[in-house]
Design a protein around this nucleic acid. Structure first.
Lengths: 209, 209
DNA sequence: ATCAAATCCAAACAACTGTTTGAAACATAC
DNA sequence: GTATGTTTCAAACAGTTGTTTGGATTTGAT
């Protein structure tokens, strides 16, 4: 059981990194198993197929994330509507994100990249899997926004949350590349945490608009 | 020359659709040529390679778009700083987008999807090609925002423009899927134009924040 | 130490990938 | 009409893909 666990998680580590870097189709099992230093066949042995491996990578990420997010939401759900502000709600989303990064290097970027790729899959089997299994926290998040800003229609909240999601996935997922550009253009370098801090007033203002 | 043009553009039509739907690596030349009803070898004959075909698809889109955008920017560049407002600048971006849609069905969504995929490529050869060839209009856009909001640092403008880009790519590129969800959840259906109109106050508020 | 289950591993599988080839079909000019 | 250049086409190329196989090796319980 000890050696097996090691093989399985070594595969997951290599896979999540490579999937985020290159995408799912562009990453071959041979590349994964070579980097993980395990035998090629062990992926099919432990996970059954490449498709299942992709889902397993998502599960490991989303379990960590949604567990922490759910706690944040619980405390917010006990507040009065007047006490709910956009900035507070955003922090409930950002805190679990930042704690991902303390666990593994570059985890925020990898997580966002994976999420983006999941949404980009238009045959949608992966997006459906993610939303069906973890969509309930997003629903709770939506309800909080409804309570905080009752003057907004439900459509407006729905779409604004997705504008926000788009900003986060795009800038955090592509942060290394964008930070490279930013540094080349005017020699300033912000860490991922700084980019997030810059993002809060932008998103909060949009939500309240 | 006439029959050739037809083959070449039939390939481009099929390719841009399939690339947007499934991605570059996930779309084989055989799938493209089958849908375009042309011979497999004609892609390499007319475009040289798959990589060049991808660039050709981008060129056709970006030429149309940047030409119109450039015109919009020219009129804005002659205004006084006090006359520049975020909403005006956003419309300069949105008008060329909407005119894409009038030329071909669903063009906005396809265009945004392609842009998103270009940015997602982390080896970055495609993003580099796009930014090198069409980055100058983005620079002009940045300068306009600087003139309009001189109190913002250049970093803030840079990142806020990318938050905006992320929102647009994510929601417009995935609009069919998101509209499906929206319709299923609360039986309201917005067209792409409506989603864009909803987006303007959100983005404008964020830019000014 | 013995047995059975779990895990690993090298090799092979068929299917698919982008690209090349050389001949056929076509168009255009003289 | 012949000759010339362009475009189409079926076939084959070498390389990569995910998956399977059957035997070796390791593991843990008795």
């Amino acid at each position: 059981m000890t050696k097996t666990e090691s093989t399985k998680s070594r595969i997951l580590d290599a896979a999540e990194q490579l999937f985020a870097e290159r995408g799912f189709a562009e990453t071959s099992l041979r590349t994964i198993t070579t980097r993980a230093k395990v035998n090629l066949a062990s992926v099919n042995y432990h996970f059954g197929s490449k498709k299942s491996l992709i889902q397993a990578v998502f599960d490991r990420f989303l379990q960590d994330f949604t567990k922490e997010l759910s706690l944040e939401l619980m405390t917010l759900e006990q507040l009065e509507p007047a006490q709910l502000e956009a900035e507070k709600l955003l922090n409930a989303l950002i805190k679990p994100l930042l704690s991902l990064n303390s666990r593994r290097d570059n985890a925020i970027s990898i997580f966002m990249r994976l999420l983006g790729r999941a949404y980009a899959e238009t045959q949608g089997h992966l997006r459906r899997y993610v939303t069906e299994k973890y969509g309930h926290v997003l629903v709770r998040f939506t309800h909080l926004f409804q309570k905080a800003y009752p003057s907004l229609t439900i459509d407006q909240i729905f779409w604004r949350l997705h504008y926000m999601l788009g900003s986060m996935i795009f800038t955090l997922g592509g942060s290394e590349a964008l930070r490279q550009i930013s540094q080349a253009d005017f020699n300033r370098d912000l860490g991922v945490e700084d980019v997030i801090k810059e993002m809060v007033p932008f998103l909060a203002a949009g939500m309240k608009a």
